[in-house]
């Protein structure tokens, strides 16, 4: 069923208008800010030890979208990142591989070539990332380019300006149109929660993205602070849980930006398990958008394996010197 057809069904309207979308999104229950933050803080206090910790570390590694999104990205840098994804820890071949590497659209071919036939996806950011300030034809062309280059996943940004102005129909149409040109590629919709101001807006943006056909909802571009906080991710996890209850379809969640330590990652996994449920503890449904998180997880993994604390000297450096 096309997104707009399903949306009309869900909203119970014959024609999808901005006022229909507004009244539906504003009819969603509000988020209790204090309660949400309190719940996130209490989930963050869980102590995960020994075998559970080892499992959590391996699971977290397998959920990483290893990311480089810099203006200074060179083919060498992308090759380095892809090589690191193939062999995260040369001292231990049993280390799981990350789920994907995430690059700008023009670097997709480089990443694909390095990864070869390995089961590591290539995700490309598109639609005038990170600001999303471009016309729809430009956004669609950006997306088509990345898909044509072989991207398995597309990370698009929503038009926050339109969203905050209350123009939900524009946001809906842009997501639906981008989804239509994605083909087989899975579409991750970046809400940029750091710019949405309230948890209520995060909840509305989550539902709007799912309604428009997003396969994943993603917190942030990583270019705006605050990025992926635990309470925001909790609100989004509630949204995908409730979406499945409503429609029967599963949607993935990807917190991105600011998650740097194993401890943080494990807190997110606890929250996934408690809020959305065990089905989401899989890299098809949950991802971390991160660049330095992998290194910290590898350090922790080495610590569990060798019994001694490790250091940066024992982690492969994926960025070639530019001197």
């Amino acid at each position: 069923m096309a997104p707009s057809e399903r949306a009309r069904d869900l909203l119970g309207v014959s024609r999808l208008t901005n006022s229909a979308l507004s009244s539906w999104l504003h009819g969603l229950p509000g988020v209790d800010q204090v309660g949400c933050e309190e719940r996130a803080a209490s989930l963050a206090t869980r102590s995960i030890k020994t075998t559970s910790k080892a499992w959590a570390i391996d699971t977290a590694i397998s959920m990483i979208d290893l990311t480089t999104l810099e203006g200074a990205d060179t083919p060498g840098r992308v090759r380095g990142l892809a090589t690191k994804a193939l062999v995260p820890d040369p001292s231990d071949p049993s280390t799981p591989r990350p789920a994907a590497i995430c690059v700008y659209g023009d670097m997709v071919a480089v990443a694909k070539e390095t990864l070869g036939s390995a089961d590591i996806k290539v995700a490309a950011v598109a639609t005038a990332f990170p600001s999303g300030r471009a016309s729809l034809p430009v956004k669609l062309a950006d997306t088509k380019d990345a898909v044509a280059a072989g991207a398995d996943e597309i990370d698009m940004v929503i038009d926050r300006g339109a969203f905050l102005a209350g123009d939900y129909l524009t946001v809906f149409r842009q997501i639906a149109d981008v989804k239509a040109v994605c083909g087989d590629a899975r579409l991750k919709v970046i809400l940029e929660t750091g710019e949405l101001v309230t948890y209520d807006n995060v909840r509305r943006a989550s539902w709007l993205s799912m309604l428009a056909g997003g396969d994943f909802i993603k917190t942030s571009t990583g270019k705006v602070s605050p990025a992926a906080t635990l309470p925001v991710t909790l609100v989004m996890l509630e949204a995908v849980r409730d979406w499945r209850d409503t429609t029967g379809d599963m949607v993935g969640v990807k917190p991105a930006g600011g998650i740097r330590t194993s401890k943080d990652a494990i807190r997110f996994l606890v929250t996934v398990n408690e809020v959305a449920g065990e089905e989401w503890l899989d890299n098809h449904w949950f991802r971390f958008g991160a660049s330095s998180l992998l290194n910290d997880l590898l350090l922790q993994r080495q610590r569990l394996r060798t019994g001694a604390y490790s250091g940066a000297d024992y982690i492969a450096d994926d960025s070639p010197s530019l001197y």
Binding site: T306, Y309, S310, G311, D313
Partner: peptide
């Protein structure tokens, strides 16, 4: 012992 075995020391 943790300082003695720490690989970043």
């Amino acid at each position: 012992p943790w300082l003695a075995s720490h690989r970043d020391v």
